[in-house]
Computed example of a mutant assay.
Amino acid sequence: MKKIALDIVTPNGSVYSEHEAELVVLQTESGEMGVMAGHIPTVAPLKIGAVRVTRSNTDKDYVAVTEGFAEIRPEKITVLVQAAEKADAIDIERAKASLMRAEERLKEDKLEHVDFHRAERALHRALNRIEVAKYR
């Protein structure tokens, strides 16, 4: 089976790189998208979610990512996001603390000028990190 390369990049540099992926599953704004070698060139907006990488039938990696874009070419996928963490690098306690802070912000009175959209995104990021951490 042909393989495809994947590079997940943040403003701080590459977070994850794989040269022998069989399948990469991305969470796009229009739904889940599976990509294999030979895929047509595409650019897709990503939402907060997990990137699932299958290297063989039993070997999988999970990476929590924020919003961004995926540039897909027949031989390589480049994921550009603000933040990304491999499942085994996620600090679950820190993610739970972030979740609690986001929930508190969402409960605050609107008179305190809480940026609802920002708090909601923080909530989704924390939930995503907690979910991806299950795949350590």
Rank of each mutant, 00 (worst) to 15 (best):
K2F: 03
I4Y: 08
L6F: 11
D7K: 15
P11T: 02
N12K: 13
Y16W: 07
S17W: 01
E20C: 05
L23E: 06
V25A: 00
Q27M: 10
T28P: 10
E29C: 06
G31I: 11
M33C: 06
G34R: 01
V35G: 04
V35H: 01
M36Q: 14
M36C: 07
G38Q: 12
G38V: 12
P41Y: 11
T42P: 01
T42I: 12
A44G: 03
A44V: 15
L46T: 08
K47V: 14
A50Y: 09
V51Q: 01
T54C: 10
N57F: 10
D59R: 15
Y62P: 03
Y62S: 02
A64P: 09
T66C: 05
G68E: 05
A70Q: 09
I72L: 06
P74D: 08
E75W: 08
V81K: 02
A83D: 10
D88Q: 11
I90T: 06
I90G: 00
I92W: 03
I92C: 00
E93R: 11
E93I: 10
S98P: 07
L99S: 04
A102T: 01
E103H: 07
E104V: 05
E104F: 08
E104R: 15
L106H: 06
E108T: 09
L111S: 12
L111H: 13
H113D: 14
